[in-house]
């Protein structure tokens, strides 16, 4: 069979996650100020364009005026399919977050969300520029919310994107890894899958030790040390991620010495 030319070949390199976002875009739509008024939300709209890249982006947000939570996000976009995928992933991440949390989402986090595995890059150099334009457009939107005071302790479990599918990439070879290799794998997964999300709330997490190759002891950092979900929802979510992504025999406990609950 004749191969498609280079231009079309680029689509063959899209990750499965990008393809699934493109199949059913959920957030591409418009919102109006009237709708926001009826629901008692603040209407926020930000637009940017770059004709050198052939990109136009508009964000529409409904923001809760008491808590600063982005209740609903929609976008309009003109550009490559990757722009649509980027905006879909980004919208999914910022909905139900407060505007400050949402503004902390950076290019790395979106890139990670579009990857099929931690080791395969999803976006090329050209689309990184598009991604930055999307982020700066959103930044413009958050400036319109700065006057809303944020309540403390708005931390949420941030790992819903993993879903229930099990795609452990280390399951087969887990038993032959050395202790150090196991620690490295666990640290890598935590770095990619957990850290960026807890960083949204100025928290951090690192692996302290691995006991008998099963018990993962984690050490919370920053605001996580004083967060109630550190021993509840967040801990359980980290446990779930490691079971799915590394090995089902693992379980996670938190180092109590740093917790200030």
């Amino acid at each position: 069979m004749k191969h498609p030319n280079l231009g079309n070949l680029r689509f063959a390199f899209y990750t499965k996650k990008i393809l699934s976002l493109l199949d059913q875009p959920r957030f591409c739509a418009t919102l109006t100020a009237e709708q926001a008024n009826q629901l008692g939300y603040r209407f926020v709209c930000a637009k940017e364009q770059d004709h050198h890249q052939g990109v136009k982006i508009a964000f529409y947000l409904f923001v809760n005026q008491q808590e600063g939570i982005i209740e609903k996000v929609r976008y309009q976009a003109f550009g490559s399919p990757l722009l649509i995928a980027i905006l879909e992933a980004f919208s999914e991440m910022i909905e139900k977050k407060n505007y400050r949390q949402a503004s902390r989402i950076g290019a790395d986090l979106i890139e990670n969300k579009l990857r099929d595995s931690p080791y395969d890059q999803a976006l090329d150099k050209q689309s990184e520029r598009v991604l930055n334009l999307a982020l700066s457009t959103f930044q413009e939107a958050t400036y319109q919310c700065m006057d809303i005071d944020l309540a403390d302790g708005s931390i949420q479990t941030p790992i819903s994107h993993l879903g229930s599918s099990s795609n452990s990439i280390h399951f087969e070879s887990w038993s032959i890894y050395s202790h150090q290799e196991k620690l490295k794998v666990i640290s890598d997964v935590i770095k990619v899958e957990i850290e960026p999300y807890v960083a949204l709330d100025e928290g951090g997490v690192e692996v302290k030790e691995l006991i008998e190759d099963k018990q993962v002891v984690i050490k919370y950092l920053g605001s996580c040390t004083s967060c109630f979900s550190a021993t509840g929802a967040t801990l359980s979510a980290i446990d779930q991620v490691l079971k799915q992504k590394v090995h089902p025999s693992l379980y996670v406990t938190a180092d109590p010495s740093v917790l200030q609950l």
């Binding site: 957030f27 591409c28 739509a29 418009t30 919102l31 709708q35 929609r74 309009q76 976009a77």
Partner: peptide, 11 residues
């Protein structure tokens, strides 16, 4: 439809 932002039926 995608460019106009008409994918969401509720909007």
């Amino acid at each position: 439809m995608i460019s106009k932002g008409a994918c969401d039926e509720t909007s």
